[in-house]
Amino acid sequence: MQAARSLEGVRVSLAELIEIRHRVRELPLFSTPAKRSLLIGMHHSKLRGRGVDFDQVRVYQAGDDVRNIDWRVTARTQEPHTKLFHEERERPIYILVEQSRQLFFGSARSFKSVLAAEAAALIGWAALEHNDRIGGLVFGTSENHEIKPRRSKQSLLQLLNRLVRANQGLNGQLPMEPDSLCLGLRRAREILRPGSLVVVICDERALSDTAEQQLLLLGRHCELLLLPLADPLDHALPAAGLLRFVQDGAQLELDTHDSDLRQAYRELGDRRQERWQRLALRLGALLLPLSTQFDLIDQLREQLQPRRA
């Protein structure tokens, strides 16, 4: 029991990600026919591509489009029949979630890697309840784990299991994987059809020039939901005196009593936030930044309620 408590917020288990399904109703993320979604516009946007599915065949009536005549049924019955279509309501939802050495850090409620896993699980369960197809990619290490979008609980559980395995394998000795977000986005562009929803859950610091370009290309045909993750220490250094950092044999010393240094550090964090905001505007995407300082559901509720009004 003591070991389990010591890992709370540091590691995540499959049981915890499955348990999150019970919190989905606290925050209805997707629209239903009777109720608009808190994520306004995500299921009522203009169709990309044809966006219709075959429904049934019936006897031709005056005014029907002759291009929709089903000639096989017409020939068999010797009476004109036409195809009927209905607007497509389900769509692939592809969750790109990072589990990297960079996320294996946290100074508040949880590590960023745990927050990323919880956010992916919440969105996955919400989408499955809404009858959408679920797939995704766990990236951030040399071995990426991809699940093709399918409308099944098994598909989501497979994604969550991959996510837990990657999370359990994180440690401070793993090699750095530069621009892994860019590679994940490129893969999404290769396999996803127009009209899909791509949920990007990654470190706030992962937005490189190449990753931004991939997001712009992906945003031409897919809807995007951006969830950059940050820790309070990503934006402000405490006045704690001389701090020493060691990474891959290199050592860095910072005098945090230096007010100019702390101010420059804050400005660097502010510029990262502003870059995400500018990108979301260009993409027409919903931006929901998350912090390790607060509960996941509370953060999302606070950010989405003003949009509902």
Results as ranks from 00 to 15, higher is better:
residue 245 F to M: 13
residue 188 A to H: 02
residue 235 H to E: 12
residue 226 L to A: 08
residue 248 D to T: 12
residue 280 A to Q: 06
residue 240 A to M: 10
residue 271 R to E: 12
residue 271 R to K: 14
residue 219 G to P: 07
residue 200 V to C: 12
residue 185 L to R: 02
residue 226 L to I: 04
residue 295 D to S: 08
residue 193 R to P: 02
residue 270 D to S: 10
residue 204 E to H: 03
residue 226 L to T: 11
residue 247 Q to M: 10
residue 195 G to Y: 05
residue 203 D to L: 11
residue 287 L to R: 06
residue 189 R to Y: 06
residue 235 H to R: 13
residue 258 D to I: 01
residue 261 L to C: 01
residue 217 L to N: 13
residue 282 R to H: 09
residue 276 W to G: 06
residue 212 E to T: 04
residue 176 M to I: 14
residue 282 R to K: 14
residue 194 P to K: 07
residue 232 P to I: 12
residue 233 L to Q: 07
residue 190 E to C: 06
residue 173 Q to A: 15
residue 262 R to F: 06
residue 183 L to D: 14
residue 287 L to W: 08
residue 178 P to N: 08
residue 180 S to W: 05
residue 222 C to I: 03
residue 208 S to N: 08
residue 296 L to T: 03
residue 205 R to H: 15
residue 225 L to C: 03
residue 274 E to K: 10
residue 181 L to W: 05
residue 215 L to T: 03
residue 239 A to T: 08
residue 182 C to K: 11
residue 237 L to P: 01
residue 198 V to Q: 11
residue 227 L to Q: 12
residue 255 D to S: 07
residue 232 P to D: 14
residue 187 R to C: 04
residue 215 L to E: 11
residue 284 G to Q: 06
residue 297 I to H: 01
residue 296 L to P: 08
residue 278 R to Q: 15
residue 286 L to C: 01
residue 225 L to D: 07
residue 183 L to W: 09
residue 213 Q to N: 11
residue 226 L to R: 08
residue 255 D to R: 00
residue 298 D to V: 05
residue 194 P to T: 09
residue 222 C to Q: 11
residue 227 L to T: 03
residue 244 R to K: 13
residue 226 L to E: 10
residue 263 Q to G: 03
residue 231 D to N: 13
residue 267 E to K: 09
residue 188 A to E: 06
residue 290 L to E: 02
residue 235 H to S: 13
residue 233 L to P: 04
residue 261 L to H: 01
residue 291 S to K: 00
residue 252 L to R: 13
residue 288 L to D: 01
residue 227 L to N: 04
residue 294 F to Q: 09
residue 282 R to P: 04
residue 250 A to N: 14
residue 296 L to H: 05
residue 217 L to K: 15
residue 208 S to L: 05
residue 287 L to G: 00
residue 286 L to K: 05
residue 290 L to P: 02
residue 222 C to D: 05
residue 242 L to T: 04
residue 176 M to S: 14
residue 195 G to H: 03
residue 279 L to P: 00
residue 210 T to R: 14
residue 177 E to Y: 06
residue 284 G to A: 03
residue 276 W to N: 09
residue 222 C to F: 13
residue 280 A to V: 10
residue 277 Q to P: 03
residue 272 R to I: 09
residue 203 D to A: 15
residue 205 R to Q: 12
residue 199 V to I: 15
residue 292 T to Y: 09
residue 262 R to G: 02
residue 283 L to V: 01
residue 235 H to N: 12
residue 256 T to K: 03
residue 261 L to S: 07
residue 296 L to S: 00
residue 263 Q to K: 06
residue 230 A to W: 11
residue 174 L to G: 12
residue 284 G to F: 08
residue 193 R to K: 14
residue 231 D to L: 10
residue 275 R to H: 05
residue 199 V to D: 04
residue 185 L to D: 10
residue 210 T to K: 09
residue 222 C to H: 15
residue 242 L to F: 03
residue 218 L to F: 11
residue 190 E to L: 12
residue 210 T to N: 11
residue 270 D to T: 05
residue 224 L to Q: 08
residue 261 L to P: 03
residue 225 L to G: 02
residue 257 H to N: 15
residue 174 L to Y: 09
residue 266 R to Y: 04
residue 213 Q to M: 10
residue 241 G to S: 05
residue 244 R to D: 13
residue 202 C to T: 15
residue 173 Q to P: 01
residue 292 T to E: 01
residue 250 A to D: 09
